[in-house]
Structure formats: structure tokens, C-alpha cells
Design a protein around this nucleic acid. Sequence first.
DNA 1: CTCAAAATATGAGATATCTCATATTATTAA
DNA 2: TTAATAATATGAGATATCTCATATTTTGAG
Lengths: 223, 223
Amino acid sequence: MKIYKGEKKRQYVTNHSIVHLFSFPIEEHIEVHEYERDEWIIQEDRRPNYLFYVIEGKAKIYVTYQNGKVSLLNFINADEYIGEMELLNDVYYTKGIQASTKTICFAFPFHRYRDRLLEDAKFLRELTKFLSVKATNMAAKYSQSLAFPLENRLADFILQTADRGVYKEKHVTVCDYLGVSYRHLLHVLTQFCEKNYLEKEGRNYRIKQYDSLYSLTEVLKNK
Amino acid sequence: MKIYKGEKKRQYVTNHSIVHLFSFPIEEHIEVHEYERDEWIIQEDRRPNYLFYVIEGKAKIYVTYQNGKVSLLNFINADEYIGEMELLNDVYYTKGIQASTKTICFAFPFHRYRDRLLEDAKFLRELTKFLSVKATNMAAKYSQSLAFPLENRLADFILQTADRGVYKEKHVTVCDYLGVSYRHLLHVLTQFCEKNYLEKEGRNYRIKQYDSLYSLTEVLKNK
DNA sequence: CTCAAAATATGAGATATCTCATATTATTAA
DNA sequence: TTAATAATATGAGATATCTCATATTTTGAG
């Protein structure tokens, strides 16, 4: 982890202005942190001292169970908060946050900002919306995961993450995210290839029948 | 649905004061609604015109898929909001809300309250906390449902809902909530009886081995 | 009270998904 | 470069869960 100072810091604060998110001057005690790929921004079960706002990069939220099972709860992208649960709740089991690319965040030390943030309607309004979307998405994922087999959820995930017609995600990550075993994920991918929905290209998969995959995702929609 | 007027209304507004939740006078245009058991407070896919605050009773949040599958996302209890997603988000698929007992709510018409609520830090702060808990709980349910078999989740649910050592929930509700088939729920309940964790008493189940059930729930905890 | 609808109950076969074992290939740190 | 580690890959058997069929009991509306 690096903390930017001086000119580099000033540059980020200027080029990624967030003054519109708050109704008080926010910049004085702000820090700019850089995390490298695979670095832990927050360690599981260890409360952070900052509220973070991601300005570049991508991260993952992980939770671990006593039996060693790991769940990738969600991805975090630019312009999203990290540590907001700890800002709001004194009692909270802190999830692990791992950078999946180089990630740069603004970091607001709780002790300097907490009280003012919790009084700021502009900030709270946006945070409330952010959390409402988060809760809605988790609810959708939950019910879909119980109501439909991997085939449907994987088709959805492939279409969402494919890069110009090619699916490139790492299997080890995806099986934690979709909550299935590595073995089963590979099994269903193989089925997609056998049906010619996908074609394997080295380590990646090229989408051959977009429509077939799309129709698998349609059952996920609400009535 | 009944709308209380006059003395009955005044009584509820007085006895369940919520002035502490807002920093502006809230009571002028408030309505008091009563819903009977099984009545729909909000119909799925139909945006409500009110933000509700439950003062008595209990309700369920449902979502339906195109193939007819139904998911019971969560329960709503007294002192919780309903319709907050629609208050915050213009684009949102409205879930169905059904009263599971007689339920009485304060109803705030959006057109009168929306703007003021979204400016009120006191209200927003509490709503943000409420949503953060909601998001956290959904995330926990999601990952648990994928990481553990019904046995563990059902043990947890039984201990949470048992009434003085007796489990009395309706199977049809529980299987929608835990996301398993009716058949499988009964199957696992039968196993619990065979192992003597539970004993059937007519339509209910008496807990015989609290410790065995409790140890099934322990794996659900985080590392 | 009566009847239809809802809820409970159980069996049997199908399938989605898991666990474990084992090999090969890619990536990373020393 | 080398060796350790992580990721990919595949087979085979186990099990958690589903679907469908069918019967009985309970509940609620008229």
C-alpha cells in the first residue's frame, strides 16, 4: 500500500473531484491510497479506520467460514464506497476487501469525518441509494441462486463480463462468486461448448450463440 | 385495507410517536393504514404511492419469477420501513409485500414527503443504517445458502423462530424462505425427528436436543 | 354445515451439485 | 532458471435437492 503525498496527491484530488458528494469541505484531511493487485484493502474481521471511495480499479468482497469455505460476495468498482458498513454500525463483522487490479482510493479517517458525514444529508442521500442498490442486488442474487441452476446464472455472468464476445474470467474466482464448486463450473462450461454456445480459445471462451445464452438468462427476470 | 380516521388515528399517532425519527414536523399528512392477514400491502410490480412505517404486525417480501417460482426474500417487523426502495430509486422492480398478521402502518404519501425526507439527515441516517443491515443480512443469507446444505440453515431457522421450545412455522412459507422444495424441507425435518433432535407434536415440532441443533448452526458463523 | 382450496404428508426416480483424487500447465518468488 | 504455488483440467462416485404423482387433513368462504 502506498500513500500519495504532495503533487501526486494534489493531482488525484483535483482530477477526481468529489466535492459534489458532500455539503462541507471534504478535502482537508483526505488521504489517497494505492493498493496493488491482490493486496488486501481491508482484512476480514479487522475493522478499518477509514471510509474509502474508489477512484480507480476494482476490488472483491470476501467472507470466510469456519470450515474454510470462501464466498465472493460482490465486486466493487470505481465511484463506490468501501467501509461504509463500519462507518454506520458499531457492531459488524468486517468482510475482507481485496484489490483485483491496482486500485486507488480516497481514504477518509473515521475519527475526523464520521460525525460530519453522519450529519450531511447530501452524503447520506447518495449513500442510502448506494446501499439500496446493494441490498436489492444481493436479494436478487440470493433468490436466483436458489431458484435456478448454475446454467442460467452462468449464462448471465458470461454475458455481463464478456469482453468483445470473449469470456475471460478466472474459474477460481467465478466459482467463489457463483457459489459452486470448481468442478461443477467446469462441467457446465463444457456443456456450453458441447452445445456450441461457446468455443474454447486457449484459456478463454468465445461466444458462438449469443441468443442461446441470452434465452437462458431470461428466466431470471421477474414476472 | 382500512384507513383510520379521527380519534382512532389520533390514538395511534400519539401512542406510537415517531417524531424522534425526523427533524421536521411529520404528523400533518400522515395516514394510518390497517391491513388484515394475507392482504397485500404492496402488489408486486406496482409502485406504491407511500412510504410505510410498520407500527404493529409482521409482513413478508415476495418476488415471483416468470416460471412461477416464488421467493420469500425476508420478513418485515414493527419499526421497519416498507417502500423505501421506491422512495429512493426511480427505477426499481417493486417486490410484493404481504401482511402475515394484522398489520398497522403509518403511510407517508410520496408527493407530500419525498423532497423533505430526502433532505432530512436524521431520517436518512436511520434509513441508511436500516438498509446497511438489510444488505448485510441478505449477503449472509446468500453466501450461507450456497455454502451449506439445508440441514444447517434449517437448524438456524428453527432456533430463531421457536416459541418456548416449539417450532410452529408453516412449511409452505418456510420452503419459499429457505429456497428449497416443500418435499425436501419435509425430508430434512423427518431426519431431525429420526435423530431425535425434534419430536413431532401434532402439527408442530418440539425441540428435544437444543445442543445438536445449535452445533449445526455453528458452521454458519464466520472464521 | 359443506365444499373447495390450501396445507400436510409420503414415495420414487431424476438431476444438479459436491467431494476427492490426480495430472498438467501457468505464474511467481527466490 | 528453478522450484514452489496457483490455476486449469478431467474422471468417478456420493449426496443434496428437485420433480412429479398421489392421498389425507385442515381451513375458510358462503
